[in-house]
Design a protein around this nucleic acid. Structure first.
Lengths: 234, 234
DNA sequence: CGAATCTTTGAATCCCGTCAATACGCGTGG
DNA sequence: CCACGCGTATTGACGGGATTCAAAGATTCG
Protein backbone atom coordinates (compact mmCIF):
# COMPACT_ATOMS: atom_id res chain seq x y z
CA UNK A 1 0.00 0.00 0.00
CA UNK A 2 2.04 2.93 -1.17
CA UNK A 3 1.84 6.69 -1.34
CA UNK A 4 0.37 7.88 1.91
CA UNK A 5 0.23 11.54 2.75
CA UNK A 6 -0.04 12.04 6.44
CA UNK A 7 -1.02 15.47 7.69
CA UNK A 8 -0.15 15.46 11.33
CA UNK A 9 0.65 18.01 13.94
CA UNK A 10 -0.03 21.46 12.54
CA UNK A 11 -3.26 22.97 13.93
CA UNK A 12 -4.79 23.80 10.57
CA UNK A 13 -4.59 20.20 9.44
CA UNK A 14 -6.02 19.16 12.79
CA UNK A 15 -9.00 21.39 12.35
CA UNK A 16 -9.60 20.38 8.76
CA UNK A 17 -9.35 16.79 9.81
CA UNK A 18 -11.98 17.32 12.47
CA UNK A 19 -14.35 18.78 9.90
CA UNK A 20 -13.63 15.79 7.72
CA UNK A 21 -14.50 13.39 10.50
CA UNK A 22 -17.66 15.34 11.26
CA UNK A 23 -18.92 14.56 7.77
CA UNK A 24 -18.51 10.82 8.18
CA UNK A 25 -21.96 9.25 8.60
CA UNK A 26 -20.51 6.64 10.91
CA UNK A 27 -19.69 9.37 13.46
CA UNK A 28 -22.59 11.68 12.75
CA UNK A 29 -24.11 11.34 16.19
CA UNK A 30 -20.99 12.22 18.15
CA UNK A 31 -20.54 15.49 20.00
CA UNK A 32 -17.84 17.98 19.02
CA UNK A 33 -15.56 16.84 21.81
CA UNK A 34 -15.97 13.23 20.81
CA UNK A 35 -15.37 14.07 17.17
CA UNK A 36 -12.12 15.71 18.16
CA UNK A 37 -11.09 12.57 19.97
CA UNK A 38 -11.82 10.45 16.91
CA UNK A 39 -10.05 12.92 14.63
CA UNK A 40 -6.85 12.55 16.64
CA UNK A 41 -6.72 8.82 15.82
CA UNK A 42 -7.70 8.98 12.18
CA UNK A 43 -5.07 8.86 9.43
CA UNK A 44 -5.97 10.50 6.15
CA UNK A 45 -4.35 9.14 3.03
CA UNK A 46 -4.61 9.89 -0.63
CA UNK A 47 -4.60 7.03 -3.10
CA UNK A 48 -4.09 7.23 -6.85
CA UNK A 49 -6.34 5.49 -9.32
CA UNK A 50 -6.10 1.69 -9.37
CA UNK A 51 -4.50 1.46 -5.94
CA UNK A 52 -5.20 -1.73 -4.06
CA UNK A 53 -6.43 -0.97 -0.54
CA UNK A 54 -6.19 -4.59 0.49
CA UNK A 55 -6.34 -8.00 -1.09
CA UNK A 56 -7.47 -11.52 -0.32
CA UNK A 57 -5.28 -13.25 2.21
CA UNK A 58 -4.22 -10.07 3.98
CA UNK A 59 -5.01 -9.23 7.57
CA UNK A 60 -6.14 -5.69 7.11
CA UNK A 61 -6.28 -3.92 10.48
CA UNK A 62 -7.90 -0.67 9.44
CA UNK A 63 -11.37 0.58 8.90
CA UNK A 64 -11.22 2.82 5.86
CA UNK A 65 -13.67 5.64 5.34
CA UNK A 66 -13.99 7.15 1.89
CA UNK A 67 -13.96 10.91 1.84
CA UNK A 68 -13.79 11.28 -1.91
CA UNK A 69 -13.35 8.85 -4.76
CA UNK A 70 -14.70 5.47 -5.69
CA UNK A 71 -13.72 1.99 -4.50
CA UNK A 72 -14.50 -1.32 -6.13
CA UNK A 73 -14.88 -4.38 -3.93
CA UNK A 74 -14.58 -7.64 -5.79
CA UNK A 75 -13.73 -11.27 -5.41
CA UNK A 76 -11.94 -13.76 -7.62
CA UNK A 77 -14.15 -16.78 -8.14
CA UNK A 78 -12.88 -20.33 -8.18
CA UNK A 79 -13.36 -20.25 -11.92
CA UNK A 80 -10.81 -17.45 -11.92
CA UNK A 81 -12.70 -14.40 -13.03
CA UNK A 82 -13.53 -11.19 -11.24
CA UNK A 83 -16.91 -10.77 -9.58
CA UNK A 84 -17.74 -7.23 -8.44
CA UNK A 85 -19.49 -7.24 -5.07
CA UNK A 86 -20.19 -3.55 -4.62
CA UNK A 87 -19.00 -0.07 -5.42
CA UNK A 88 -18.37 2.28 -2.51
CA UNK A 89 -18.35 6.08 -2.64
CA UNK A 90 -17.93 9.08 -0.33
CA UNK A 91 -19.22 8.44 3.19
CA UNK A 92 -18.98 4.67 2.84
CA UNK A 93 -16.54 2.57 4.80
CA UNK A 94 -14.79 -0.70 4.17
CA UNK A 95 -12.51 -3.06 6.02
CA UNK A 96 -15.09 -3.88 8.66
CA UNK A 97 -15.06 -7.61 7.97
CA UNK A 98 -11.62 -8.08 9.51
CA UNK A 99 -12.60 -5.78 12.36
CA UNK A 100 -15.31 -8.18 13.35
CA UNK A 101 -13.81 -11.46 12.25
CA UNK A 102 -10.02 -11.13 12.60
CA UNK A 103 -9.60 -13.80 9.93
CA UNK A 104 -8.05 -12.95 6.59
CA UNK A 105 -10.20 -11.16 4.05
CA UNK A 106 -11.34 -13.10 1.01
CA UNK A 107 -11.83 -10.23 -1.40
CA UNK A 108 -10.09 -7.26 -2.96
CA UNK A 109 -10.59 -3.50 -2.70
CA UNK A 110 -9.24 -1.19 -5.37
CA UNK A 111 -9.74 2.51 -6.07
CA UNK A 112 -11.41 3.30 -9.38
CA UNK A 113 -10.25 6.90 -9.25
CA UNK A 114 -8.03 9.10 -7.13
CA UNK A 115 -9.45 8.82 -3.63
CA UNK A 116 -9.03 10.42 -0.24
CA UNK A 117 -9.54 7.85 2.44
CA UNK A 118 -9.30 7.99 6.22
CA UNK A 119 -7.87 4.97 7.98
CA UNK A 120 -8.82 4.11 11.55
CA UNK A 121 -7.09 1.27 13.33
CA UNK A 122 -9.35 -1.54 14.47
CA UNK A 123 -8.19 -1.15 18.06
CA UNK A 124 -9.38 2.44 18.12
CA UNK A 125 -12.63 1.55 16.43
CA UNK A 126 -13.16 -1.14 19.01
CA UNK A 127 -12.97 1.33 21.85
CA UNK A 128 -15.30 3.73 20.04
CA UNK A 129 -17.87 1.02 19.44
CA UNK A 130 -17.85 0.12 23.13
CA UNK A 131 -17.84 3.73 24.29
CA UNK A 132 -20.28 5.30 21.85
CA UNK A 133 -23.33 3.09 21.29
CA UNK A 134 -24.35 5.33 18.41
CA UNK A 135 -21.31 4.25 16.41
CA UNK A 136 -22.17 0.59 16.80
CA UNK A 137 -25.73 1.35 15.82
CA UNK A 138 -24.60 3.19 12.70
CA UNK A 139 -22.48 0.24 11.73
CA UNK A 140 -25.44 -2.05 12.25
CA UNK A 141 -27.53 0.16 10.01
CA UNK A 142 -24.94 0.11 7.28
CA UNK A 143 -24.28 -3.61 7.41
CA UNK A 144 -27.99 -4.30 7.47
CA UNK A 145 -28.52 -2.18 4.38
CA UNK A 146 -25.61 -3.87 2.63
CA UNK A 147 -26.99 -7.25 3.51
CA UNK A 148 -30.37 -6.30 2.07
CA UNK A 149 -28.72 -5.03 -1.10
CA UNK A 150 -26.61 -8.12 -1.51
CA UNK A 151 -29.63 -10.35 -0.96
CA UNK A 152 -31.43 -8.37 -3.60
CA UNK A 153 -28.51 -8.80 -5.99
CA UNK A 154 -28.50 -12.51 -5.23
CA UNK A 155 -32.15 -13.14 -6.00
CA UNK A 156 -31.84 -10.95 -9.06
CA UNK A 157 -28.88 -12.88 -10.44
CA UNK A 158 -30.44 -16.21 -9.54
CA UNK A 159 -33.95 -15.55 -10.72
CA UNK A 160 -34.28 -12.79 -13.29
CA UNK A 161 -33.11 -12.86 -16.90
CA UNK A 162 -30.58 -10.45 -18.36
CA UNK A 163 -33.13 -8.02 -19.82
CA UNK A 164 -34.83 -7.60 -16.50
CA UNK A 165 -31.60 -7.07 -14.62
CA UNK A 166 -30.30 -4.47 -17.02
CA UNK A 167 -33.63 -2.62 -17.13
CA UNK A 168 -33.88 -2.62 -13.34
CA UNK A 169 -30.36 -1.30 -13.00
CA UNK A 170 -31.06 1.56 -15.40
CA UNK A 171 -34.30 2.46 -13.66
CA UNK A 172 -32.71 2.42 -10.22
CA UNK A 173 -29.80 4.51 -11.41
CA UNK A 174 -32.24 6.96 -12.92
CA UNK A 175 -34.30 7.11 -9.75
CA UNK A 176 -31.18 7.65 -7.67
CA UNK A 177 -29.94 10.42 -9.94
CA UNK A 178 -33.33 12.07 -10.22
CA UNK A 179 -32.86 12.43 -13.97
CA UNK A 180 -33.63 10.30 -16.98
CA UNK A 181 -30.16 11.06 -18.24
CA UNK A 182 -27.79 8.87 -16.29
CA UNK A 183 -24.03 8.60 -16.39
CA UNK A 184 -22.51 5.29 -15.43
CA UNK A 185 -19.81 6.28 -12.99
CA UNK A 186 -17.93 3.06 -13.61
CA UNK A 187 -16.79 0.92 -16.52
CA UNK A 188 -19.50 -1.06 -18.24
CA UNK A 189 -17.61 -4.26 -17.60
CA UNK A 190 -17.92 -3.55 -13.88
CA UNK A 191 -21.63 -2.87 -14.16
CA UNK A 192 -21.94 -6.11 -16.10
CA UNK A 193 -20.11 -8.00 -13.37
CA UNK A 194 -22.27 -6.36 -10.71
CA UNK A 195 -25.32 -7.65 -12.58
CA UNK A 196 -23.83 -11.09 -13.00
CA UNK A 197 -23.38 -10.72 -16.75
CA UNK A 198 -20.51 -10.76 -19.21
CA UNK A 199 -19.59 -7.40 -20.77
CA UNK A 200 -20.71 -8.77 -24.13
CA UNK A 201 -24.20 -9.58 -22.94
CA UNK A 202 -24.54 -6.24 -21.21
CA UNK A 203 -23.48 -4.44 -24.36
CA UNK A 204 -25.91 -6.45 -26.44
CA UNK A 205 -28.80 -5.75 -24.12
CA UNK A 206 -28.14 -2.01 -24.19
CA UNK A 207 -27.97 -2.16 -27.99
CA UNK A 208 -31.26 -4.04 -28.07
CA UNK A 209 -32.90 -1.46 -25.78
CA UNK A 210 -31.74 1.33 -28.06
CA UNK A 211 -32.99 -0.61 -31.07
CA UNK A 212 -36.38 -0.85 -29.38
CA UNK A 213 -36.41 2.88 -28.81
CA UNK A 214 -36.36 2.66 -25.04
CA UNK A 215 -33.00 4.33 -24.44
CA UNK A 216 -30.40 6.39 -26.25
CA UNK A 217 -26.74 5.63 -25.84
CA UNK A 218 -24.65 8.79 -25.82
CA UNK A 219 -20.92 9.19 -25.98
CA UNK A 220 -18.93 7.70 -23.14
CA UNK A 221 -21.08 6.23 -20.41
CA UNK A 222 -24.10 8.42 -20.88
CA UNK A 223 -27.50 6.82 -21.20
CA UNK A 224 -30.84 8.53 -21.69
CA UNK A 225 -34.00 6.69 -20.71
CA UNK A 226 -36.78 7.35 -23.23
CA UNK A 227 -39.41 4.83 -22.18
CA UNK A 228 -39.23 3.96 -18.51
CA UNK A 229 -42.63 2.32 -18.76
CA UNK A 230 -41.42 -0.25 -21.26
CA UNK A 231 -38.29 -0.89 -19.21
CA UNK A 232 -40.24 -1.51 -16.03
CA UNK A 233 -42.40 -4.08 -17.81
CA UNK A 234 -39.45 -6.35 -18.46
CA UNK B 1 -49.50 -15.95 13.28
CA UNK B 2 -51.34 -18.50 15.34
CA UNK B 3 -50.69 -20.89 18.18
CA UNK B 4 -48.56 -19.06 20.72
CA UNK B 5 -47.91 -20.58 24.09
CA UNK B 6 -46.94 -17.95 26.59
CA UNK B 7 -45.37 -19.09 29.82
CA UNK B 8 -45.56 -16.15 32.13
CA UNK B 9 -45.57 -15.61 35.84
CA UNK B 10 -44.86 -18.89 37.56
CA UNK B 11 -41.31 -19.12 38.94
CA UNK B 12 -40.40 -22.40 37.26
CA UNK B 13 -41.13 -20.99 33.82
CA UNK B 14 -39.19 -17.89 34.79
CA UNK B 15 -36.16 -19.90 35.71
CA UNK B 16 -36.34 -22.13 32.66
CA UNK B 17 -36.72 -19.05 30.54
CA UNK B 18 -33.60 -17.56 32.04
CA UNK B 19 -31.63 -20.66 31.19
CA UNK B 20 -33.04 -20.45 27.71
CA UNK B 21 -31.90 -16.87 27.33
CA UNK B 22 -28.47 -17.75 28.68
CA UNK B 23 -27.96 -20.11 25.76
CA UNK B 24 -28.65 -17.41 23.17
CA UNK B 25 -25.36 -16.41 21.55
CA UNK B 26 -26.60 -12.86 21.17
CA UNK B 27 -26.66 -12.48 24.95
CA UNK B 28 -23.73 -14.72 25.78
CA UNK B 29 -21.66 -11.94 27.28
CA UNK B 30 -24.26 -10.70 29.72
CA UNK B 31 -24.04 -11.24 33.47
CA UNK B 32 -26.61 -13.32 35.34
CA UNK B 33 -28.43 -10.23 36.56
CA UNK B 34 -28.58 -8.83 33.07
CA UNK B 35 -29.75 -12.14 31.67
CA UNK B 36 -32.60 -12.10 34.15
CA UNK B 37 -33.56 -8.65 32.97
CA UNK B 38 -33.63 -9.80 29.36
CA UNK B 39 -35.53 -12.96 30.27
CA UNK B 40 -38.31 -10.87 31.76
CA UNK B 41 -38.96 -9.21 28.40
CA UNK B 42 -38.66 -12.23 26.18
CA UNK B 43 -41.72 -14.09 24.93
CA UNK B 44 -41.28 -17.75 24.08
CA UNK B 45 -43.58 -19.21 21.46
CA UNK B 46 -43.92 -22.55 19.84
CA UNK B 47 -44.64 -22.72 16.13
CA UNK B 48 -45.81 -25.74 14.15
CA UNK B 49 -44.23 -26.77 10.90
CA UNK B 50 -44.84 -24.42 7.96
CA UNK B 51 -45.83 -21.48 10.12
CA UNK B 52 -45.12 -18.07 8.63
CA UNK B 53 -43.20 -15.89 11.09
CA UNK B 54 -43.60 -12.82 8.94
CA UNK B 55 -44.09 -11.97 5.30
CA UNK B 56 -43.20 -9.28 2.79
CA UNK B 57 -45.05 -6.04 3.39
CA UNK B 58 -45.44 -6.54 7.12
CA UNK B 59 -43.92 -4.32 9.78
CA UNK B 60 -42.56 -6.97 12.05
CA UNK B 61 -41.62 -5.45 15.40
CA UNK B 62 -39.90 -8.41 17.00
CA UNK B 63 -36.49 -9.90 16.98
CA UNK B 64 -36.97 -13.65 16.94
CA UNK B 65 -34.40 -16.00 18.34
CA UNK B 66 -34.55 -19.64 17.40
CA UNK B 67 -34.22 -22.01 20.31
CA UNK B 68 -35.01 -25.16 18.39
CA UNK B 69 -36.20 -25.85 14.89
CA UNK B 70 -35.41 -24.58 11.42
CA UNK B 71 -36.49 -21.43 9.62
CA UNK B 72 -36.37 -20.71 5.91
CA UNK B 73 -35.90 -17.11 4.78
CA UNK B 74 -36.87 -16.51 1.19
CA UNK B 75 -37.97 -13.90 -1.26
CA UNK B 76 -40.38 -13.91 -4.17
CA UNK B 77 -38.61 -12.62 -7.26
CA UNK B 78 -40.20 -10.32 -9.81
CA UNK B 79 -40.44 -13.35 -12.06
CA UNK B 80 -42.63 -14.87 -9.37
CA UNK B 81 -40.69 -17.80 -8.05
CA UNK B 82 -39.24 -18.48 -4.64
CA UNK B 83 -35.59 -17.74 -3.95
CA UNK B 84 -34.22 -19.10 -0.69
CA UNK B 85 -31.90 -16.61 0.99
CA UNK B 86 -30.76 -18.61 3.99
CA UNK B 87 -31.69 -21.30 6.46
CA UNK B 88 -31.55 -20.44 10.15
CA UNK B 89 -31.22 -22.87 13.02
CA UNK B 90 -30.90 -22.91 16.82
CA UNK B 91 -29.07 -19.88 18.18
CA UNK B 92 -29.75 -17.78 15.09
CA UNK B 93 -32.01 -14.76 15.11
CA UNK B 94 -34.15 -13.08 12.50
CA UNK B 95 -36.27 -9.98 12.21
CA UNK B 96 -33.33 -7.62 12.65
CA UNK B 97 -33.86 -5.85 9.34
CA UNK B 98 -36.98 -4.06 10.55
CA UNK B 99 -35.26 -3.35 13.85
CA UNK B 100 -32.67 -1.32 12.04
CA UNK B 101 -34.66 -0.03 9.12
CA UNK B 102 -38.28 0.37 10.31
CA UNK B 103 -39.44 -0.03 6.72
CA UNK B 104 -41.50 -3.03 5.69
CA UNK B 105 -39.69 -6.31 5.16
CA UNK B 106 -39.32 -7.58 1.61
CA UNK B 107 -39.00 -11.28 2.31
CA UNK B 108 -40.68 -14.18 4.05
CA UNK B 109 -39.78 -16.35 7.03
CA UNK B 110 -41.34 -19.78 7.49
CA UNK B 111 -40.62 -22.63 9.87
CA UNK B 112 -39.51 -25.85 8.18
CA UNK B 113 -40.27 -27.88 11.28
CA UNK B 114 -41.82 -27.41 14.68
CA UNK B 115 -39.83 -24.62 16.27
CA UNK B 116 -39.45 -22.93 19.62
CA UNK B 117 -38.74 -19.28 19.13
CA UNK B 118 -38.26 -16.40 21.54
CA UNK B 119 -39.65 -13.04 20.52
CA UNK B 120 -38.15 -9.80 21.81
CA UNK B 121 -39.80 -6.51 20.98
CA UNK B 122 -37.64 -4.07 19.05
CA UNK B 123 -38.08 -1.40 21.72
CA UNK B 124 -36.55 -3.69 24.32
CA UNK B 125 -33.76 -4.72 22.01
CA UNK B 126 -33.05 -1.09 21.34
CA UNK B 127 -32.46 -0.39 24.99
CA UNK B 128 -30.28 -3.49 25.35
CA UNK B 129 -28.15 -2.49 22.39
CA UNK B 130 -27.56 0.94 23.89
CA UNK B 131 -27.02 -0.38 27.42
CA UNK B 132 -24.94 -3.47 26.72
CA UNK B 133 -22.26 -2.83 24.08
CA UNK B 134 -21.60 -6.55 23.89
CA UNK B 135 -25.04 -7.16 22.44
CA UNK B 136 -24.49 -4.66 19.65
CA UNK B 137 -21.12 -6.23 18.98
CA UNK B 138 -22.63 -9.69 18.76
CA UNK B 139 -25.18 -8.42 16.30
CA UNK B 140 -22.38 -6.86 14.27
CA UNK B 141 -20.56 -10.17 14.24
CA UNK B 142 -23.60 -12.03 13.05
CA UNK B 143 -24.57 -9.56 10.36
CA UNK B 144 -21.00 -9.42 9.17
CA UNK B 145 -20.84 -13.19 8.86
CA UNK B 146 -24.16 -13.26 7.05
CA UNK B 147 -22.97 -10.59 4.68
CA UNK B 148 -19.84 -12.61 3.92
CA UNK B 149 -21.93 -15.71 3.33
CA UNK B 150 -24.37 -13.92 1.07
CA UNK B 151 -21.53 -12.39 -0.90
CA UNK B 152 -20.08 -15.83 -1.30
CA UNK B 153 -23.42 -17.15 -2.52
CA UNK B 154 -23.63 -14.24 -4.93
CA UNK B 155 -20.27 -14.77 -6.57
CA UNK B 156 -20.94 -18.49 -6.67
CA UNK B 157 -24.28 -18.10 -8.42
CA UNK B 158 -22.93 -15.44 -10.76
CA UNK B 159 -19.64 -17.05 -11.65
CA UNK B 160 -19.54 -20.80 -11.13
CA UNK B 161 -21.36 -23.45 -13.11
CA UNK B 162 -23.85 -25.89 -11.64
CA UNK B 163 -21.36 -28.75 -11.16
CA UNK B 164 -19.04 -26.55 -9.17
CA UNK B 165 -21.80 -25.15 -6.98
CA UNK B 166 -23.23 -28.55 -6.15
CA UNK B 167 -19.80 -30.03 -5.44
CA UNK B 168 -18.86 -27.10 -3.22
CA UNK B 169 -22.10 -27.40 -1.29
CA UNK B 170 -21.54 -31.09 -0.66
CA UNK B 171 -17.96 -30.54 0.43
CA UNK B 172 -18.88 -27.73 2.79
CA UNK B 173 -21.72 -29.73 4.27
CA UNK B 174 -19.32 -32.61 4.76
CA UNK B 175 -16.73 -30.40 6.38
CA UNK B 176 -19.33 -28.87 8.68
CA UNK B 177 -20.66 -32.27 9.68
CA UNK B 178 -17.22 -33.78 10.11
CA UNK B 179 -18.31 -36.88 8.23
CA UNK B 180 -18.37 -37.95 4.64
CA UNK B 181 -21.91 -39.12 5.15
CA UNK B 182 -24.11 -36.07 5.11
CA UNK B 183 -27.82 -35.69 5.61
CA UNK B 184 -29.52 -32.76 3.92
CA UNK B 185 -31.59 -31.26 6.69
CA UNK B 186 -33.88 -29.58 4.23
CA UNK B 187 -35.78 -30.43 1.07
CA UNK B 188 -33.69 -30.76 -2.05
CA UNK B 189 -35.75 -28.12 -3.78
CA UNK B 190 -34.68 -25.69 -1.08
CA UNK B 191 -31.03 -26.64 -1.44
CA UNK B 192 -31.43 -26.16 -5.18
CA UNK B 193 -32.90 -22.70 -4.68
CA UNK B 194 -30.14 -21.82 -2.23
CA UNK B 195 -27.64 -22.72 -4.95
CA UNK B 196 -29.53 -20.78 -7.58
CA UNK B 197 -30.60 -23.89 -9.44
CA UNK B 198 -33.85 -25.58 -10.38
CA UNK B 199 -34.70 -28.81 -8.54
CA UNK B 200 -34.36 -30.66 -11.85
CA UNK B 201 -30.81 -29.49 -12.45
CA UNK B 202 -29.82 -30.27 -8.87
CA UNK B 203 -31.24 -33.74 -9.17
CA UNK B 204 -29.45 -34.31 -12.48
CA UNK B 205 -26.12 -33.17 -11.08
CA UNK B 206 -26.40 -35.49 -8.10
CA UNK B 207 -27.27 -38.34 -10.45
CA UNK B 208 -24.28 -37.49 -12.63
CA UNK B 209 -21.98 -37.43 -9.59
CA UNK B 210 -23.23 -40.85 -8.57
CA UNK B 211 -22.78 -42.08 -12.13
CA UNK B 212 -19.18 -40.86 -11.99
CA UNK B 213 -18.65 -42.77 -8.75
CA UNK B 214 -18.01 -39.69 -6.66
CA UNK B 215 -21.00 -40.00 -4.34
CA UNK B 216 -23.64 -42.49 -3.30
CA UNK B 217 -27.24 -41.43 -2.90
CA UNK B 218 -28.89 -43.22 -0.04
CA UNK B 219 -32.50 -43.34 0.96
CA UNK B 220 -34.10 -40.07 1.93
CA UNK B 221 -31.71 -37.16 1.97
CA UNK B 222 -28.59 -39.10 2.75
CA UNK B 223 -25.51 -38.60 0.64
CA UNK B 224 -22.15 -40.29 0.99
CA UNK B 225 -19.07 -38.64 -0.48
CA UNK B 226 -16.75 -41.21 -2.03
CA UNK B 227 -14.26 -39.05 -3.89
CA UNK B 228 -13.87 -35.63 -2.31
CA UNK B 229 -10.77 -35.05 -4.41
CA UNK B 230 -12.69 -35.32 -7.65
CA UNK B 231 -15.44 -33.09 -6.31
CA UNK B 232 -13.02 -30.39 -5.26
CA UNK B 233 -11.49 -30.34 -8.74
CA UNK B 234 -14.73 -29.20 -10.35
C1' DC C 1 -0.25 11.72 -29.07
C1' DG C 2 0.02 6.80 -28.39
C1' DA C 3 -0.94 2.56 -26.13
C1' DA C 4 -3.51 -0.04 -23.15
C1' DT C 5 -7.96 -0.92 -21.80
C1' DC C 6 -12.56 -1.01 -22.60
C1' DT C 7 -16.47 -1.76 -25.81
C1' DT C 8 -18.89 -3.53 -29.56
C1' DT C 9 -20.32 -6.91 -32.95
C1' DG C 10 -20.56 -11.52 -35.04
C1' DA C 11 -21.16 -16.51 -35.08
C1' DA C 12 -21.25 -20.93 -32.90
C1' DT C 13 -21.87 -23.64 -28.84
C1' DC C 14 -23.66 -25.39 -24.81
C1' DC C 15 -25.49 -25.42 -20.41
C1' DC C 16 -29.46 -24.82 -17.95
C1' DG C 17 -34.35 -23.97 -17.67
C1' DT C 18 -38.88 -25.32 -19.05
C1' DC C 19 -42.52 -28.54 -19.75
C1' DA C 20 -44.32 -33.03 -18.91
C1' DA C 21 -45.03 -37.43 -16.96
C1' DT C 22 -43.94 -40.80 -13.57
C1' DA C 23 -42.28 -42.54 -9.22
C1' DC C 24 -41.24 -41.90 -4.62
C1' DG C 25 -41.62 -40.75 0.17
C1' DC C 26 -43.05 -38.11 3.84
C1' DG C 27 -46.50 -36.44 6.93
C1' DT C 28 -51.14 -36.45 7.92
C1' DG C 29 -55.41 -38.45 9.46
C1' DG C 30 -58.04 -42.26 10.53
C1' DC D 1 -50.01 -48.20 13.49
C1' DC D 2 -51.15 -48.31 8.89
C1' DA D 3 -52.89 -46.46 4.72
C1' DC D 4 -53.78 -42.80 1.99
C1' DG D 5 -52.72 -38.47 -0.52
C1' DC D 6 -50.17 -34.70 -1.74
C1' DG D 7 -45.91 -32.54 -2.17
C1' DT D 8 -41.36 -33.84 -3.53
C1' DA D 9 -38.06 -36.01 -6.53
C1' DT D 10 -36.52 -38.00 -10.72
C1' DT D 11 -35.94 -38.56 -15.66
C1' DG D 12 -36.50 -37.31 -20.64
C1' DA D 13 -36.77 -34.25 -24.60
C1' DC D 14 -36.54 -29.81 -26.23
C1' DG D 15 -35.62 -24.91 -26.84
C1' DG D 16 -33.51 -20.72 -25.77
C1' DG D 17 -30.67 -17.38 -23.82
C1' DA D 18 -26.21 -16.44 -22.27
C1' DT D 19 -21.37 -17.50 -22.65
C1' DT D 20 -17.36 -18.13 -25.28
C1' DC D 21 -14.05 -17.07 -28.76
C1' DA D 22 -12.44 -13.80 -31.94
C1' DA D 23 -11.51 -9.45 -34.03
C1' DA D 24 -12.30 -4.75 -34.96
C1' DG D 25 -13.42 -0.23 -33.18
C1' DA D 26 -13.68 3.41 -29.52
C1' DT D 27 -12.21 5.75 -25.40
C1' DT D 28 -9.51 7.02 -21.79
C1' DC D 29 -5.33 8.13 -19.47
C1' DG D 30 -0.49 8.81 -19.01
Amino acid sequence: MGGMHQHLGHPEGENALEQLVARIPLFSQLSDAELGEVARRVTPRSFPRNAQLYGAGEHNANLMIIHSGLVKVYRITDAGHEQVIRILGPGDFLGESTFIDRSAVDHFAVTLEKSDICALHHDDLHSYVLTFPGVAFKMLETLSRRLAETEHQLSSVAGDDADHRVATYLLEASAAAGTERIRLGIAKKDVASLLGLTPETFSRKLAAFEEAGWITLHRGRDIELLDTRALSLL
